[in-house]
Design a binder for these strands. Sequence first.
DNA 1: AATGAATGAGTGTTCATTCAT
DNA 2: TATGAATGAACACTCATTCAT
Lengths: 227, 227, 227, 227
Amino acid sequence: MPPHAQEQPFYKTMTQTEQTARRLPRSGRGTSSKCEQILQSAGQLFLQQGYERTSMSQIARMAGVSKGSLYNHFENKADLFTAFFEERSRTRLNTLKSVSRAPQPDLRTALRQAAATIITLMIDPEAIGLYRIVVAEANEFPNLADTLWHYGVSRTLTGLAEWFADKHATGQLVIRDIDLAAEQFLTMCQTRIIHRSRLSLPVDTSQTSIDGVASMVADSFLKMYAP
Amino acid sequence: MPPHAQEQPFYKTMTQTEQTARRLPRSGRGTSSKCEQILQSAGQLFLQQGYERTSMSQIARMAGVSKGSLYNHFENKADLFTAFFEERSRTRLNTLKSVSRAPQPDLRTALRQAAATIITLMIDPEAIGLYRIVVAEANEFPNLADTLWHYGVSRTLTGLAEWFADKHATGQLVIRDIDLAAEQFLTMCQTRIIHRSRLSLPVDTSQTSIDGVASMVADSFLKMYAP
Amino acid sequence: MPPHAQEQPFYKTMTQTEQTARRLPRSGRGTSSKCEQILQSAGQLFLQQGYERTSMSQIARMAGVSKGSLYNHFENKADLFTAFFEERSRTRLNTLKSVSRAPQPDLRTALRQAAATIITLMIDPEAIGLYRIVVAEANEFPNLADTLWHYGVSRTLTGLAEWFADKHATGQLVIRDIDLAAEQFLTMCQTRIIHRSRLSLPVDTSQTSIDGVASMVADSFLKMYAP
Amino acid sequence: MPPHAQEQPFYKTMTQTEQTARRLPRSGRGTSSKCEQILQSAGQLFLQQGYERTSMSQIARMAGVSKGSLYNHFENKADLFTAFFEERSRTRLNTLKSVSRAPQPDLRTALRQAAATIITLMIDPEAIGLYRIVVAEANEFPNLADTLWHYGVSRTLTGLAEWFADKHATGQLVIRDIDLAAEQFLTMCQTRIIHRSRLSLPVDTSQTSIDGVASMVADSFLKMYAP
DNA sequence: AATGAATGAGTGTTCATTCAT
DNA sequence: TATGAATGAACACTCATTCAT
């Protein structure tokens, strides 16, 4: 019996959320080249300038289509925005789900590597941009957070939890609440580098710097959960 | 000799930042009642809707002054925005600096209480709003992050670091890098509740929930640094 | 060898000017009826009130289009202004180029007639308006003067110079510097009537008055250049 | 009996004009240092940018006084503008009235010198500016032309006419219509240099260039009026 | 006489959206 | 389906002028 299935009543509030996030995009949208072209340009602009600062004319111009065409493919600006966000979240954030799948003889090394991968993926300009958009438009577009969580965070947490459950089963780790442990691990990865990157604060993002934080995360995690 | 003064070269990149953040607002601004009236209304709207969605007309209407009056007190929209942000950051975030000053016989209890205080302060709607604004406008207004860091994060970290240094001196904790430890503590406090609040995701913010995370933070921290 | 090709070094400074003036308006602009409609209204207002006193709202109202439509056809107010000026200069001032082409048995009569034509054309309200606009906006829109010179003055001078060269060849006139002579002729035509008209000073613009100045110009010119 | 008093019915239309121009400025205005300070700044701005582009705030700022003070000294913007124009016309254009008073043994030399003086004075940036303002605001402020004519042109013409009358009396010149001759002389002086300067067209304003035009004017004038 | 905050109509310009072609 | 001209409301901002101090 997996230990993390026992008792997590107080933070399990994602039911409604995950449902909404699973809403599929309009059928066929994105398959046509015109659509992709528009979504591509819209994405670039939305990520750079945010929702309000990006105009439909700008998107049309960059996509090389007429302004009217935008409205043939998307109901309005909000619809185009949502479509862009879902597509980007789906295609770019799914890299996170495979974190730490490579087997490593040494657990500490494996943890370090997982942390370093997570940090690297999350300070990618596109990931930072998506995070910014969600936070910026949290009031106007509450669904964005669901999407981000669904495609980004949720999978990573699940992946980590399965991994930790395995280590728990083999006795390499002793974890009472596995979901919480996964969330702690992910949170600790955000120390300094990710956090400051999201604020555009000056920060050292060299590999050395990333490895430094990753080591700290692995060491701390082991102190917390090593038998 | 304090141990945290020895060797933290790779993440010390805040020098320029803290300097910029210390820039004071235009002298006298905010003293006049009209100014405060405007800043008050502007703040409410900016926090609710963000920078772009808030119009000068809206602000004037809510403040009960003419649109032209806004420009007698502030150079332009960006200037008013910056003034609002600095004033709010200064007056609201300085509550964070006194975190954990109350003496507690039990270190674990004190850590729990500190974590709970931090969480409570940071999920306050105004704190969440300020964070959102910084993230949303990080490209357009890079100085906001400096201000937020200066008035919000920096003081909290310093407070925590001094506290930990004291515990290290008395042998209750064994910490090699005290600044890093403070940053870790603050980061762990953001697990789940703060993180999800920033995304407007549904989350349990009851005292029980907060205490749960706070306990986890305190326990983990002790596992990492208790002798 | 034409005598006017010999030595006029010191006042030949129009090379750059004439080049710039030859810049054509955006292709197709003015062909659409909406464009012409806008240019027509803009012209009337600009000529009456000048650049600054004419508002885009006024133009839109008079043209019977929405304010936004103005910006579908012209980049901004300055662009619309320039377009109006070039179109008017081209279509109205080219009447000047054919001055004095009618053969006349008597040279004195021909000169009188040419002078009278020039005066009549240059005190036309539209010509006066264009001149005023150029002078008024010389600092803000330096290109206007180039356009006016190109379409208005330059052609007239060339026409006169060719005519005088012919008379020089046949011995009816003896002119050392033919370009200068043409410029003198044109300048003398501005005595009193044109000059005062440009200042809106009260002036007799009857045919009799015009003929009086024209006779004076012809007589003086002959005294200066008759063999 | 002065010959120029005989028969100039058709161009004598200045009666009303000269009356208006003689209207005196408000008593005392300009004597106070504050007033002069304001007029000085207003003048600089009006000459540079024209009436519409100059704002009362700009003037107040440059004069170092409050915006309200402007309205203590002048009824409104138009009043300040008119006051500036009259003061400048009076103080700067009266240099023109003394043209050609220096006795010269050689008439040709004297004429050349007079022409050169006129040209030099009229291409002075301030004179050009005043001319531009009159032309630009001819519709909105018709009185400016009267003022300019009264203080600028009228005096020069009178001076020239008296001089020519003297030469006619001594037989050095033979002139039927002396007023017309004076106006011709003044007009010819505007050939090329003055004309182009008013349009801000590139033009050679070196002493050599000025002397060239002045010589041409003198030679032509002598051919027209030498016995 | 001097100030400067207050005003509200006005400016040029941009916007998302529509619709006839 | 694709276009691009048309729209009118909204935008940030400026203006000349007033008036209580």
